[in-house]
Design a protein around this nucleic acid. Structure first.
Lengths: 155, 155
DNA sequence: AGTGAAAAACAATGGCG
DNA sequence: CGCCATTGTTTTTCACT
């Protein structure tokens, strides 16, 4: 299903990850291939799921979203039903950018982006804490973001 | 400089954030505008920096990157020079997806993606700990990722 | 696996209601 | 401010090496 990636593929992926507006012509010049070959390789990478999708990256500040926070959530009663409901809600909440289960003493770690501290407080008190499953919530606010590119390391 | 976004802009941004492959024609059909108007609005949004860039979103597993970890770093000697060097190194390290300074007891929180646990160990022991400024490192590994779309909440 | 040229789809621009 | 028509780019397909 997933044939091996060669050096051309890696280079194309690296360039597209940083800038998906590059034309096949430009990509071809950078990696040493014709535009038609780049097109064919791109289609293959998209079809195989190596390229999941193309996205516009927006500026949070320009949209009035000034607060990024990491929220650790500890669940109380670990019933299967409780956990399932909690997960479904998290996935559905637009303020939640990322949600992972972690090793260590916290059950879930959320990355949350909201307009301001008031909105964060509302999110925690009105969305998170009222859920049965949730025992405890602890949030840390990002004071300064040095890097947030989410660029995967290639090669 | 940054004129207010109206409902059309918000809808366009929401669609493009999820799928930047949509053509202006398709966007126009979804929001109720002609393709040329969508084109103009997009250019404005790009120029104003609301749209920062377009990116290909890649599948970490398909690239052999199976481990995501959150790494909390505590600095020892808080000299300006130490901190600056540490920050520069972090920004330059491709394994680091995100780096923030947080409120609370940890100085920096890093999101790190690497091939496997061995690579995580190498990253911590060979990249992080040898730095003068670093006093303590504590990592939590993401066992399951429920959500990782980094889609900003619009509206 | 690769190239180059032709066809089809698309974005961008100027004119007009 | 909005839409339509034209122009120039870009992607994709096809014939060929």
């Amino acid at each position: 299903m997933n044939s091996a990636l060669d050096g051309f593929d890696i280079k194309i992926l690296r360039l597209l990850q940083g800038n998906a507006s590059l034309t096949n012509q430009q990509l071809g010049e950078d990696v040493g291939l014709s535009a038609s070959q780049v097109s064919r390789r791109r289609q293959k990478l998209e079809q195989e799921g190596v390229i999941r999708r193309y996205r516009a990256s927006l500026d949070p500040d320009a949209l009035g979203l000034t607060v990024t926070a990491y929220v650790g959530v500890t669940l109380g009663a670990h019933t299967r039903e409780n956990a399932r409901r909690f997960r479904d809600r998290m996935v559905a909440m637009p303020e939640v950018q990322e949600a992972h289960t972690l090793t260590g003493d916290v059950d879930y770690m959320l990355k949350v982006v909201v307009a301001d501290l008031k909105a964060l407080s509302r999110f925690i008190n009105d969305e998170l804490l009222p859920q049965e499953a949730v025992l405890n919530v602890r949030s840390s606010i990002a004071m300064e973001t040095l890097k947030d590119d989410n660029l995967l390391p290639l090669e």
